[in-house]
Write a protein that binds this DNA or RNA. Structure first.
Lengths: 220, 220
DNA sequence: TTTTTTGTCCCCCTTTTATGGTATTGTAAC
DNA sequence: GTTACAATACCATAAAAGGGGGACAAAAAA
């Protein structure tokens, strides 16, 4: 068996889900699909890393809501111990914050349990091929994450070019003195700009200005 | 025609691409697909908004590299004038920064020109259905965007709970005095924590600490 | 052509931050 | 039962930032 080509080696899958019926139907679905092999199933994700270590799956299907432990924490654990394992979240609801938490925790895919069986198989093949499988609706939410970050970019427009230079320098962590040197202007000029910036941004300290500019992504 | 049901009304598509061959094959592909209708094609995106206004498409296929204008700027323009129009970027290469620029500009999908024709049709139907069509490789890059933001979260761990409180307050824009009041501790204690925070973060000003913490997403 | 904006600079004065110390408690680890 | 760390607090001094002005030339807008 060891001598077979890589392409003929089954994709090892581990399933974490507290619902036995779901575990079983996933097992049926996946294990009888050529090329896939369910090597382990668990009804909770306590000590997930240890469980993974024992069965070394290539792909993990992880429920979010399990008793005694959070699937998202499990993802963090697994990803930090086994960065190459791909994890697909598998859940009933598409709660916006759960999605982002899961993705930030290191999940690569996000499927709803209502997904057609054939799509689940495709998702696993997809993730092995370097894809990031997710339902259209979830992909859309991920996109909105990007879009939301450009809404009020008009704020930036009210700053003159020189004021923007100074604000950028503040974000870099430069002091007045450093900014003056960097922009080849007097420190008094820097002070003038900063006063105007605070005025326009409705803040009254470097920290506030920097926090606001970074959070609202005035620059990139 | 106007009296037909919505589901029977064709999806109006506009194409921006400087390559005539590509325009023509897209036209062939899409226009002869039931339910789709190419209502306009352009070899550049100068005055994109005006062009859109004339033909009012539901979906736009936009090349990134066109002479005389940037597809990404066109996306910004169109999106700000017609927020409900869905735009799919359609390009030869998958340059990482172009992808993010396009998505931040408001594109919802991102396809490579090497995509199979059938997938292009699916993508258009997908986007109408609220999806965000993109190739697996691109979806993966988008995922990496999230993942990249959790890499060095161990930094945060070295801060004690109280130090984290103070740092969070700094990010909120609070001054020493305000933090002291807010956390019910002496301003001297605040100063002590801040000194330790700077030490651990390897910075030496509020601005740097705040910028670093926000950029590296120590909190959320 | 006049007015407004932008970029540049200066002064005075107050408040806040930064740096470098020391010190006391309670708790957790060894 | 000592060592280590966390949380708390204080002092002194220097440096930086904030708030209030005013000024002037060049460019842009009205």
């Amino acid at each position: 068996m060891q001598s077979k080509l890589n392409t003929e080696v089954n994709i090892r899958i581990a399933i974490f889900d507290d619902n036995e019926a779901i575990r079983n139907s996933l097992f049926q679905l996946l294990n009888y699909t050529p090329g896939l092999e369910v090597v382990a199933m668990f009804d909770n994700c306590v000590n997930a890393t240890k469980k993974i270590d024992e069965y070394l799956p290539r792909v993990v299907l992880m429920d979010i809501n399990m008793p005694d432990c959070s699937g998202i924490d499990a993802v963090k654990e697994i990803k930090s111990a086994f960065p190459t394992i791909d994890i697909i979240m598998f859940t009933v609801f598409e709660e916006e914050n759960k999605i982002f938490e899961a993705l930030q925790a290191g999940a690569t895919g996000y499927l709803l349990k209502s997904t057609q069986p054939i799509k689940i198989i495709e998702a696993i093949q997809d993730i092995i091929a370097g894809g990031a499988p997710m339902t259209a609706a979830i992909a859309r939410k991920v996109m909105q994450f990007f879009n939301n970050q450009i809404k009020q970019q008009h704020n930036k427009d009210v700053l003159t070019s020189r004021e923007q230079d100074v604000l950028k320098s503040l974000i870099e962590g430069y002091s007045y003195k450093m900014i003056a040197a960097h922009l080849h202007i007097s420190i008094e000029t820097v002070r003038t700009y900063i006063k105007r910036i605070y005025d326009k941004m409705h803040v009254n300290s470097m920290t506030e200005a920097v926090a606001k500019a970074i959070k609202e992504r005035w620059f990139n």
